[in-house]
Design a binder for these strands. Structure first.
Length: 437
RNA sequence: CGGGGCGUGGCGCAGCCUGGUAGCGCGCGUGUUUUGGGUACACGAGGCCGCCGGUUCGAGUCCGGCCGCCCCGACCA
């Protein structure tokens, strides 16, 4: 994108309503604009980051064997009556009526709908296990939306639903998703820690919240240093292999991790001091097993091995995709602005033409832009160098390639790494090589 | 939902107490200037002061109602 004709309305001052860092920076960097309380429009830069995050989630879900579907945002009330949740859900559910006065709702989640789909399409236990997911906008009419997209009313969520013959199968599905989550968050440059969560009467120990570490996070967490050190993406755990998954689950759950509410000081200090970590975190995902809570009342029943009907055991697995945009910024920013991890940055590189109209500057920046393509943002605005530096830092491109009259005349560019502030004067070719490596 | 606060050009704010027809900074446009970290000067565009009603000769300002948004708490991906 050429910034001179791009819709990236950066703000020099912070709008009064934004309190926390990610909200301020998302507004200032032109990622989103608020439409109503807890409802946001995504502008080009924000949408690009959102799409990259969504794509990483998608790739890791697919790698773990889940199948993507897309369910509607609007659901019939009837489905929710079958599970008994229509009356139980309360005012967080946005209820609507169509012209025929039929009761509908804007989906806050999809257990009922997926169970309905599954019972229509699957007949035999031999077709299990299966895991279906979608990435779709949800609406929960929060009493008090806040923190920008971190707690909006409308939000983009990945939710997956597993179907297994029995509890043992459900455990494998659960562990599979847990591994996929560790890999997903790692790829986004985040340190994620699964914390055992309250799961109600059904879940047993199969309910975990995924907390992402961020200095400004909402809750205090204590954990084993292993969560920061282990490379989940590279680890040799194989999906579809129950032993690998058990080994993974043991490694995961053997390390200490707790939020302040559940923190056990004695257990924590039993860890070697060098292994103890504490910090703040933001919840970005939640996985849990819920057995036959929906399959039973909704009549999801398949032919079992001995001809008798079986009721599948289910689990659900959520990731707050739009929340992650805010979460990543909370985890990675400084005074000047956002510091995007390479994998989720709206643009991987910002090319700064410090003097549009200068033949050498124009030629060099255009050549770089042509080679970098869509993942580059070319700042070709007729503006002061200072304004471009400030906006580039604010927008947080992982790399900046800075071209001014002096360096252009010398056939060189300045390459700046946003995360470290490190700068080097190099040839355009070697700048390209480093950015693309 | 309990408590608090705020709605005035795109953004940040003053003006309201003590009614007299709207102002500042930033941004935006034009020109000159400057040219590697938000340059300086000049000129200019842009606001039915959230909405409705009331009081008054006159309402951004006073009174009533409504709507919207934010913060703390309880609640939540």
């Amino acid at each position: 994108m050429r910034l001179s004709h791009g819709f990236v309305p950066t703000l020099r001052e912070t709008p009064a309503e934004a309190q926390i860092a990610s909200h301020r920076l998302m507004l200032r960097a032109g990622l989103v604009r608020q439409t109503a309380a807890g409802i946001y429009a995504w502008l080009p830069a924000g949408l690009r980051a959102l799409a990259k995050i969504e794509q990483i989630v998608r790739e890791e879900q697919d790698a773990a064997g889940a199948q993507e579907v897309l369910m509607p945002t609007i659901q019939p009330a009837e489905l929710w009556r079958q599970s008994g949740r229509y009356d139980a859900y309360g005012p967080e559910m946005l209820r609507i009526r169509d012209r025929h006065d039929r009761e509908l709702l804007y989906g806050p989640t999809n257990e009922e709908m997926i169970t309905d789909l599954f019972r229509q399409g699957v007949r035999s236990y031999r077709e299990l296990p299966q895991n279906l997911y979608h990435i779709q906008w949800k609406f929960r009419d929060e009493v008090r939306p806040r923190f920008g997209v971190m707690r909006g009313r409308e939000f983009l969520m990945k939710d997956a639903y597993s179907f297994d013959i029995d509890y043992a199968g459900a455990v494998v599905s659960y562990r599979t998703m847990m591994l996929a989550y560790m890999r997903t968050f790692q790829r986004m440059g985040l340190k994620a820690i699964p914390m055992q969560a309250d799961s109600g009467p059904i879940g047993g120990d199969l309910s975990h919240e995924f907390i992402v570490l961020a200095p400004t996070g909402e809750s205090q967490v204590f954990y084993d240093a292993g969560f920061e050190e282990i490379d989940w993406v590279g680890a040799d755990y194989r999906y579809g292999n129950a032993e690998d998954l058990e080994r993974f689950f043991k490694q995961m759950t053997s390390m200490y991790a707790a939020t302040d509410e559940k923190h056990d000081h004695a257990e924590f200090t039993a860890l070697a001091e060098s292994r103890r970590r504490s910090g703040r975190g933001i919840e970005v995902g939640h996985i849990f097993y819920f057995g036959t809570k929906y399959s039973a009342p909704m009549g999801l029943s398949l032919a079992g091995p001995n001809g008798q009907p079986i009721v599948p055991h289910m689990g659900s697995y959520g990731i707050g995709v739009s929340r992650l945009v805010g979460g990543i910024i909370e985890a990675s920013h400084d005074e000047a602005g956002i510091i995007w991890p390479d994998t989720v940055a709206p643009w991987k590189v910002g090319i700064l033409n410090l003097k549009p109209g200068d033949a050498a500057c124009d030629k060099m920046t255009e050549a770089l832009y042509a080679k970098l393509g869509a993942d580059a943002l070319l700042d070709d605005r007729d503006d002061r160098p200072g304004a471009k530096f400030a906006d580039a830092d604010l927008m947080g491109h992982p790399w900046q390639i800075i071209v001014g009259p002096r360096s252009a005349a010398a056939g060189e560019v300045e390459l700046k790494r946003r995360a470290t502030g490190e700068r080097a004067t190099v040839s355009p070719d070697s700048a390209l090589a480093r950015v693309l490596s």
